[in-house]
Design a protein around this nucleic acid. Structure first.
Lengths: 162, 162
DNA sequence: GATATTGGTTATCAATCATAACTAATTATC
DNA sequence: GATAATTAGTTATGATTGATAACCAATATC
């Protein structure tokens, strides 16, 4: 957790760790920043009893009314069996509803409930606060540049969706 | 700005998923880019029978000869018990060596072996290739700007080490 | 109309990560 | 200088996450 605190007055048997090589890797910085942001995000969502995946599901259902579970799973890059437990939990809390499709009775249309929308809105306010806190030092211009750069990386990887 | 969702009444959204809200979050882009890079990195390291953590350990041992296990664990943000299995595996392959410290016989000094250095060098060439491939679209200037921005985020989070 | 495919589900398993408790050695306290 | 507290490393174990296989019901394909 915390950084090692050197005891006063004695020469530390080990000096500060040298991160020279790792610092040369973009992926290293990306991963550390992501770890930090995901950790803070989970703490942000905790009061709402939401986690990264359940919140993401809520968001996508709000933005995509009547989305199917399989489409949601694909959008979230989650295996279908794992999607089931996420949806089960959200439905159990009556934040979303499953509704059989008339035209394809295998599938469900997922919709947000009133309670779900209310929670979504509160959580999203908190998430925007978390984002603002963690990217405060970045002027909007820089932040946009970062996102642009990241999108380029995603495009190269062939997983860009926008 | 929003991608037009088919406005044909109550049709299920079998069309493109709308990521509007998620796209507004820096953390979302960060995480997706990181997922992509980590996945590609693991594939890159596979031929060397290394994983993210074992490779990172190798790098830090090369850059910090005689580093202690606990310092390595702290640097990698890994719990000590989990560090043990990583070090065990690397030592089992004779890529690194444990050496008791004379001045503190509880601790070990970790060092790279000749075989370890050789593997490290080959793997690092591959990793640099992987980095180059995934950040090819970014001019050096942009990449540096991204890293600077990420470092700012890390500083706010209080986990910056450089 | 038989066959293949798809959406969702269940059960299960592997991988990852964290925690508790132990030993041996060192440091702190009186 | 004996005792207590702390630290480095280890072992065993448990929780959480993520992936796979097999299944049922509905739809699509030929």
């Amino acid at each position: 957790m915390g950084k090692a605190v050197s005891k006063k007055g004695e020469q530390p048997s080990v000096d500060k760790t040298n991160f020279e090589t790792l610092n040369g890797f973009t992926g290293y910085h990306l991963k550390r920043a992501t770890n930090l942001m995901m950790s803070d995000l989970n703490a942000t969502l905790k009061p709402f009893e939401l986690r990264l995946l359940s919140y993401t599901a809520l968001v996508l259902i709000v933005d995509n009314p009547r989305i199917r579970m399989s489409q949601l799973a694909a959008a979230m890059d989650v295996e279908r069996p794992n999607m089931v437990v996420i949806v089960d939990a959200l439905e159990g809390r009556e934040l979303i509803s499953r509704q059989r499709l008339e035209n394809d009775r295998r599938a469900y249309a997922l919709n947000i409930t009133l309670a779900g929308r209310s929670l979504y809105e509160k959580a999203t306010v908190a998430v925007r606060g978390h984002e603002e806190r963690l990217t405060r030092q970045l002027d909007a211009q820089t932040r946009d540049k970062v996102i642009e750069a990241i999108k380029l990386i995603l495009k190269i990887g062939g997983v860009a969706h926008t």
